[in-house]
């Protein structure tokens, strides 16, 4: 094992403290990541909810986007929620002009797919991989996975079939925010991947 490397939470903007709290409750050492030097220390990374266009811009301005892409390609376990899912998608639909993602997940994601805040909602969703009970999912101006490529697999969908949770190797993404509830099975799934990989 490569020692006890901390788990990172991308802290450019968004609800990164809530993610840090969940990971800390597993006994993980958690650090915030805003710079390449911090990224180099971590054995896994959560990209939080927030505004994806802002995360994109700041990650490029501060030289973090390229190291992030390289780390993802090297197999760093990463979990993205909402804006984080957008950042992990190979293709972003309805992004702001010039918006880029880090990529890694072989999917296309539509930003603000449900509409504006009035359409934000919460609902229970059965996730077969996680078993009972259903996951209580909170969607806030949330994205939806519109197409799923060969390399990615679907973990969860709404009743109407729209995909809201995907996985591909060490990458995990959800349209919703488990960090806002007490059900942390998705974080646990990510953290187990971190422990199994112990990224060197």
């Amino acid at each position: 094992m490569a020692g006890n490397r901390p788990v990172g939470v991308l802290a450019l903007q968004g609800d990164y403290r809530e993610h840090a709290r969940v990971l800390a409750s597993f006994g993980a050492e958690v650090i915030t990541v805003r710079r390449p030097a911090e990224l180099e220390r971590v054995s896994g990374l959560v990209i939080p909810g927030g505004e994806s266009s802002v995360m994109d811009k700041l990650s490029r301005q501060f030289g973090l986007a390229e190291p992030l892409r390289a780390a993802i390609a090297d197999g760093l376990p990463v979990y993205g929620t909402c804006a984080g899912l957008i950042m992990l998608a190979d293709t972003v639909l309805d992004g702001m002009a010039g918006q880029r993602s880090l990529g890694g997940l072989d999917i296309s994601v539509r930003r603000n797919a449900f509409g504006r805040q009035r359409e934000s909602f919460e609902v229970d969703i059965d996730i077969e991989e996680l078993g009972a009970p259903p996951v209580h999912a909170v969607f806030i101006r949330a994205p939806v996975v519109e197409t799923v490529g060969e390399r990615a697999s679907v973990l969860g969908a709404l009743d109407d079939g729209r995909v809201i949770a995907v996985e591909q190797g060490n990458l995990l993404g959800t349209s919703f925010h488990p960090e806002m509830t007490d059900d942390h099975r998705f974080h646990r799934r990510f953290y187990e991947r971190v422990l199994a990989t112990r990224f060197v």
Binding site: V54, A83, V123, T181
Partner: peptide
């Protein structure tokens, strides 16, 4: 309560949640 079989809009959590996503921003 964490049991919501039908989609529910306008809940406290959803309303406060958008502000959570704006944190660290301008």
């Amino acid at each position: 309560t964490d049991s919501t079989p039908r989609p529910s809009v306008g809940s406290d959590r959803v309303k406060r949640g958008l502000a959570e996503m704006l944190k660290g921003g301008v």
